[in-house]
């Protein structure tokens, strides 16, 4: 869902940068506060893994493919939606500048969709569903739902931006973007996020802040 240059008029790009800026600022504040000898490598490894997996498009159907975003997963592991914003922002900057994946003018919009929306929806769905339980299966379910919703809602917001930009018609845009990313959410985002979070909680509970929910048995 990386929006390329040209898909959004410049004046709208500026508005998206302005909306993204306070979130990116807060994510820098988060890093400022939370980074320590344990979390710096964790942040780096998660970012590297997310970059690599974003380059691996999985085929879905209708001649379309898609890749995981990973913002929700990062936010849940690092215990803050701002962690997801921070990490995805770094990944998006490298992708735009070095690989031409996602535009430079549309970076603000891409940060909003994949960084902010995906992280916040994913993280707060996960924490909000606490009453499902805290055993392995329940945590996996919560992560799956959070990550799925995160990418799905981000795709819908992206479709609305495309409509405001005069690039996609509203209804069909919502339909296609929603449909494709609902499937990507099932086969990639939700599944991979759940597997990674549960394994880390099981084997490296010390990395979680404040504490893990899956108690190693």
């Amino acid at each position: 869902m990386h929006i390329p240059d040209g898909f959004i008029p410049l004046w709208q790009c500026i508005i998206y940068f302005a909306i993204a800026a306070p979130f990116v600022y807060q994510s820098i504040r988060w890093a400022n506060r939370e980074m320590d000898e344990k979390k710096i490598p964790l942040l780096g490894v998660l970012a590297a893994g997310i970059f690599a997996i974003q380059a691996m498009n999985v085929p879905i159907m209708w001649g379309t493919s898609g890749h995981m975003v990973g913002a929700a997963m990062a936010a849940i592991i690092l215990g803050s939606p701002f962690a997801g914003v921070f990490l995805i922002t770094v990944v998006l900057i490298i992708q735009a500048i070095m690989f031409g994946d996602g535009g430079v003018t549309t970076l603000g919009a891409n940060i909003i969709n994949m960084g902010i929306i995906s992280s916040f929806i994913g993280y707060y769905t996960y924490t909000g569903l606490k009453k499902i339980g805290t055993n392995e299966k329940a945590v996996a379910t919560r992560v799956f739902i959070g990550a799925w919703l995160g990418i799905f809602i981000a795709a819908l917001v992206c479709a609305v931006e495309m409509w405001l930009a005069g690039t996609f018609p509203l209804v069909q845009g919502l339909f296609f973007m929603g449909l494709y990313h609902a499937v990507i959410g099932l086969v990639a985002e939700g599944t991979i996020s759940a597997v990674v979070v549960v394994s880390l909680q099981k084997y490296r509970s010390d990395l979680f802040n404040p504490r893990p929910e899956v108690i190693p048995s």
């Binding site: 869902m1 390329p4 240059d5 001649g63 992206c158 495309m162 494709y180 990313h181």
Partner: peptide
């Protein structure tokens, strides 16, 4: 990796006017 267009590119190709808009800034 699949070389099929991704969700956004695929949506864009359904709308002829959108597909031609891509214009790399750098």
């Amino acid at each position: 990796a699949s070389s099929n267009p991704d969700g956004l590119e695929s949506s864009a190709s359904s709308f002829p006017s959108a597909d031609e808009k891509e214009q790399p800034a750098l």
